[in-house]
Nucleic acid binder design. Structure first.
Lengths: 227, 227
DNA sequence: CTCATAGTTCGACCTTAATCGAAGCATCTG
DNA sequence: CAGATGCTTCGATTAAGGTCGAACTATGAG
């Protein structure tokens, strides 16, 4: 009726199965080509191309041309956040794309949410940071405390440059499997990167599953203890 | 493309313009009837009915029957949260709502609904009881907790005999003006009676208006604080 | 009781858009 | 340059589902 940039349009974009599959695939944080996304969605390249231009037009994607390839990634953390929220609703109402398999348990344990850690390990890390007073919730905003900044520096994260950048350092993201918050924002991303650098964890780009090495899991537990 | 919840189904539900308008209307927090939502979406009642049953099936709504009316509200905060996120993505969606309910300010403030307290004060009392954990929603049923029973006893209400009687102790009743729940059932009735006994409030039988004394309003505020 | 109102169900119509074959660009390789 | 690869555009087909009229059920009012 009364028009404007409506939520119906955006939701309809996400609401097509092929497009939803593409978006879900992009939740891994990796940029994917048209052909890869077509494969992921189970449609031909022509169809995928059409879908992707619509998603792009809707502002959900960020396209990058490189030679004869065209790479797509999610446009922003906000997009990932909304998708994660939708997953929560879908999980709650019991609609799944497929029966729960072994993958599902792995995904619940630890997975990539766009560019940061999610799943049980993700919420565990978040809770630990909160409990140790490294993060505080100031109204709606999540803030890094001084001790938190020191902690991150100790973990060899360049906190200063994160703070200088325009992107928010700390952001809450709702976990669809845990139904609780985990840490997003540039710090969340930096932490996951650091976990990989240290070879504590490894991410599978295709499935979004994050697997911890035995040593990595132990170190993680020490660094982010849960009461 | 194989794991995880089916976001496409949920997003498609939100993605229809008519349904999106209904959901947007429900973001006010008020419960609305089928006809009102039909009007809001600009479709006939038949169409609205069909849409609403789909939304309900998808777990996005919480329906409540009251007489020959059927009221719908959003199923949870999570649903509202996702809708808000979508609005953010849609960027700059301005919409307007129209008001419903009695015009009389006094009736809005506090009135009798059959035998219990309704209006702003009524929903306030209900919200407070819920927030303090005196009432819990168990599925469709509203239950009095142990602390709630103690609270009522403290307020000199004979909880035991209420429980022995056949009539339900706690019942949700949808508020006309607020379009949110307030407390009905024998406990709701007992609470209003007690308010009168203490001379905190007085009811005008003809107009159904309930007027609080200055002292009564203060005591009420203390007993049923709103965060 | 009858009448009115709120909502649901059914069936037919019809718009929308997803899909893919085929052809057309664009870019890289040899 | 030609040939291969990645992607886009066009057009026709087709399936999905939104829409409303009409008939039906349920509740309330007089």
């Amino acid at each position: 009726m009364r028009e404007g940039p409506d939520i119906a349009h955006i939701a309809a974009l996400i609401g097509d199965p092929a497009r939803a599959n593409m978006l879900t695939a992009l939740m891994s944080g990796k940029a994917l080509t048209v052909s890869e996304l077509a494969e992921e969605a189970g449609v031909t390249i022509q169809t995928a191309s059409s879908h992707l231009s619509k998603l792009d037009e809707g502002g959900l994607l960020r396209p990058r041309k490189q030679g004869r390839h065209k790479y797509f990634s999610l446009a922003s953390d906000e997009v990932a956040h909304v998708l994660e929220g939708l997953m929560g609703l879908a999980a709650g109402s019991g609609y799944r794309r497929k029966r729960t398999g072994p993958r599902d348990a792995e995904l619940r344990q630890a997975r990539v949410c766009y560019n940061h850690l999610a799943g049980d390990m993700g919420t565990q890390m978040f809770d630990s940071l909160m409990a140790q007073g490294h993060l505080v919730l100031d109204g709606e905003e999540l803030k890094l405390t001084d001790t938190g900044a020191a902690f991150a520096s100790e973990f060899e994260i360049d906190v200063e440059s994160l703070c200088k950048a325009r992107a928010p350092v700390c952001r809450e993201c709702l976990d669809w499997s845990e139904r609780r918050s985990h840490l997003a924002g540039s710090l969340g991303r930096a932490l996951l990167n650091r976990l990989e650098e240290l070879a504590w964890a490894k991410r599978d780009q295709k499935t979004r599953v994050v697997t911890f090495s035995r040593n990595g899991a132990e170190e993680f537990k020490k660094l982010f203890p849960v009461k």
